[in-house]
Amino acid sequence: MIHFFEKGSGQPLVLIHGFCESGRMWNYFAEELSAYFRVICPDLPGFGDSPIFGDQISLEEVAVQLEEWMEENHIHDPIVIGHSLGGYVTLALLELMGSGLKAIGLFHSTAFPDDEEKKEMRNRTITFLKKNGVEKFVTSFVPPLFPENRREELSAEIQAAIEDAKRSSLDGLIAYAGAMRDRKDRVEILRNFKGPKLLIAGTEDGAVKIEASRAQQDAFSHYIELHGVGHMGMVEEREKTVEVVREFCLRSL
């Protein structure tokens, strides 16, 4: 069962959160965009209030669950935008549903698979989680998602992100660390999609390097670079990014 909240009416806009997050991260976006769209924010299985059964899952399985959830809730021809892991899920959904999606957007995410260094980091994450649990992991994982020179300024936002991350299940964190490690290259799937495609990248993003974003820039119809921004542009530059998303979605109609 997928827990979600929604606000507004009209064209469905599904916002998919990232690793160590939940649908709550999109509260501001839902509030601002609900005047224009039916904004729907699910908790992926294993995060927030959505259960997961076991500590293994693939992005393809998550996409199937989301497609069924959308059918049950009459979410047709949606625009889907995902942050980080949510972007990987969005691309898996794109492979599954194709032209059943009106448009897609990636927030600090990539169609490239993990390289060997990143795969090894995922393995270390799984080992750490099994040994130390959720709370110890998220308190060390979340702050570096923000640029070091803004962590004091954004301390309240960082603390809120940590508290939301603590709601993640241990099985969920282990499962998605493995799913991200094992995900496939979806650059061609992205290129072949004829609908509007948005990529928002941060020049200071430590999780998805700006070089990787620039390397796939030509696969997108809309590419936005946020200077001085890390992995959390929707928090670091929330007014600017919500306007980018609003304009992209309106143009996609």
Rank of each mutant, 00 (worst) to 15 (best):
F47S: 06
I40Q: 10
I57S: 04
S99M: 02
F112H: 10
V39R: 08
F112G: 00
I57L: 06
A63W: 01
W69K: 11
G46P: 13
V62L: 04
Q65N: 12
D55Q: 08
I52M: 07
G87Q: 10
E61N: 13
Q65Y: 05
E116W: 00
G48H: 08
I57W: 00
H83W: 00
L94E: 08
I40G: 08
I40F: 01
E120W: 05
E71L: 06
L93E: 10
V64L: 07
M97Q: 14
L96C: 12
H76S: 10
D77M: 06
G54F: 00
K118R: 15
M121C: 02
I52V: 15
H74R: 10
I81S: 02
P42A: 05
F107L: 13
H74F: 08
P42Q: 08
I40L: 10
E61L: 01
E71N: 12
L91S: 12
Y88E: 02
Y88K: 14
D49G: 03
D114T: 03
G98Y: 09
V89Y: 02
D55F: 00
V62Y: 02
E68F: 01
K118P: 00
G48P: 13
M97F: 01
K102A: 07
K119W: 03
I52T: 12
V64D: 13
F107S: 11
V64K: 14
L96I: 11
W69P: 03
S99I: 12
K118M: 11
E120A: 14
K118E: 04
L85C: 07
G105K: 09
L96V: 12
Y88A: 14
V80P: 05
C41A: 11
L44M: 14
Y88P: 10
M97Y: 02
I104T: 08
A63K: 07
L96S: 13
C41G: 06
V39C: 08
Y88G: 05
D114Y: 08
L66I: 15
T110R: 12
F47W: 10
D115H: 09
V89S: 02
E116T: 02
C41L: 03
N73Q: 03
V39K: 05
A92C: 10
H83S: 05
I81L: 06
P78L: 00
E68N: 14
L85N: 02
A63R: 03
E71I: 05
V62F: 03
E95W: 00
E120Y: 05
V39F: 01
L93R: 08
H83N: 11
S99V: 12
R122M: 04
S99A: 07
H74P: 00
D115W: 05
S58F: 03
G87V: 14
C41K: 09
E68L: 11
F53G: 02
H83G: 03
E71P: 01
A63H: 04
T90M: 01
A63F: 02
I52R: 04
L85I: 06
S84P: 10
S58Y: 02
P113T: 12
D43L: 01
L85V: 04
E68K: 15
R122T: 13
E67H: 14
M70K: 10
P45C: 13
T90H: 03
G98V: 04
G86K: 11
F53E: 15
D49C: 07
E61Y: 01
Q56G: 09
T90D: 04
K102Q: 11
